[in-house]
């Protein structure tokens, strides 16, 4: 069986600065992988390469055997056409640090936009799904509210509903609790935990070590553009093999 996600020798440069120096990673259906590491280690960049929010200069990323973003024909590597990339982006769902809800649309309209415009559903079908997922994140009663009328935690839950309603094969979470007040962090983590229990495949970039420990089936520690260490969360957190990880864990809060 092909892996859900297959990253091979991923290289990414910003100008002359190489931020990803050859990352390899495979992920099976239903896995929940947390990516930890200090800022600048490349964890967010890696996530953003998977849905082509960042271009990458070397290596391949495949979802369900389908090469993302680039195709190689006759030895030459070419960016796929925009339309094709847009279609591939819908294979994944993404939640952002800053939520990025569309401020001029209600919560329900935020969730419905992709369903209607990308999945070509009727408005009625889209509304049924939007209500289902808003209910799932505990915000059905707020479906007609605008983002400006919601708290940060509520906005992030709507943003997660918006991504997950598209029925992606893989969810990408990019530091989704970093912009939240501490008392709002938990409601968002609970939603993600629920999705994990449903068997959703997820890649989670996070600074919440306790959460990573509890929810993940595997943890990846990024260090200076490479995977520094990866494995079972218990072993990683309790018996780190590398000095870098041990150091990193010492400076991060694990509560």
């Amino acid at each position: 069986m092909t892996n859900l996600l297959e990253i091979r020798d991923l290289h990414k440069r910003y100008g002359t600065v190489e931020v990803l120096k050859g990352v390899d990673c495979s992920m099976r259906q239903g896995e929940v992988i947390s990516i930890i590491g200090s800022s600048g280690s490349g964890k967010t960049t890696m996530l953003r390469c998977i849905n082509m929010l960042e271009e990458f200069q070397g290596g391949t990323i495949a979802i369900d055997g389908q090469e993302i973003g680039y195709e190689t024909a006759g030895g030459a590597r070419r960016r796929k056409p925009e339309r094709e990339i847009a279609r591939q982006r819908a294979l994944t769902g993404m939640a952002f640090q800053q939520f990025n809800l569309f401020p001029h649309m209600t919560a329900a309209a935020n969730v419905m936009l992709g369903l209607v415009k990308v999945k070509k559903m009727s408005r009625d079908e889209a509304m049924v799904l939007a209500e289902k997922w808003l209910d799932r994140v505990g915000l059905l009663s707020r479906k007609d509210h605008y983002p400006g009328q919601l708290s940060g935690g509520q906005q992030q839950r709507v943003a997660i509903a918006r991504a997950i309603a598209m029925n992606p094969k893989l969810m990408l979470f990019d530091e989704v609790t970093s912009a939240l007040d501490p008392e709002l962090v938990n409601e968002v983590l609970q939603v993600i935990k629920g999705l994990a229990e449903d068997g959703m495949s997820m890649l989670i970039v996070t600074h919440e070590m306790r959460f990573a420990y509890e929810v993940s089936s595997r943890v990846i520690f990024m260090n200076q553009g490479r995977i520094g260490e990866e494995g079972d969360p218990r072993e990683m957190f309790l018996k780190p093999k590398t000095e870098r990880l041990a150091e990193f864990l010492k400076t991060s809060t694990f509560n």
Binding site: M52, L53, G93, F96, V118, R162, A163
Partner: peptide, 9 residues
């Protein structure tokens, strides 16, 4: 980015 992420052209 959010628009791209849900697959909008």
């Amino acid at each position: 980015e959010a628009a791209k992420a849900i697959g909008l052209t």
